[in-house]
Design a binder for these strands. Structure first.
Lengths: 94, 94
DNA sequence: TTGTCATTTAGTTATTTAGCTAAATTCCTA
DNA sequence: TAGGAATTTAGCTAAATAACTAAATGACAA
């Protein structure tokens, strides 16, 4: 069971989270953004899933991944408060 | 050259950063907090150094490691602004 | 300058990670 | 229900990581 910080240690996985910031995307659409094979991307998705950072939902013939921002917030908040920093989340744009 | 996120991926290294939050400590004093050998700790220090998160200064027969908080802030700030979060650093206690 | 303590380097091992291709699975659609 | 697209699983390889012990280095102190 990889921690959030393990999941964040690979640049592709950080990029995936950013792509998901504005809404869900299918595994294939996500994979198209990166220059590695789809099975490799599938393994990255699995690591993000196991860390609780994303979740996938079967939707038609696709799987739509969505960001679980609260897991990320919680992990960063926990670490940063240990380090004496504060995290603030801005209000949603409307 | 490991990134800040690589350096943060090991729990011992995150704990080292927290121990250094309030000031410098020698390699030996830091190592005493963990249940691994000193050479193993030396490798963890090296990774933190290469990521720019700590620096060591020869001081008497010891090496004093100090936190480079700005590197951590910059990396977290960079990632969090990509993710639509904000980081604030509270004023120093006086 | 020799001894001692602190730290790092060397060298080894086991495990994990990241990547690939090929095959299996899943789920729609015709 | 057969075909086809999307995704994951299996199985493999190479490289990186984390750990250890033993040896080397560095820096003071007697």
């Amino acid at each position: 069971m990889p921690s959030v910080f393990d999941a964040l240690s690979h640049p592709i996985r950080r990029d995936v989270l950013e792509l998901l910031k504005r809404g869900g995307m299918s595994a294939g659409a996500l994979a198209d953004h990166f220059d590695v094979s789809k099975p490799t991307m599938s393994a990255h998705f699995a690591k993000l899933r196991e860390a609780g950072l994303i979740q996938g939902e079967q939707c038609g013939g696709h799987i739509i991944y969505t960001l679980n921002l609260s897991t990320l917030e919680e992990a960063l908040h926990g670490f940063m408060s240990r380090m004496g920093m504060n995290l603030t989340i801005p209000e949603d744009d409307q």
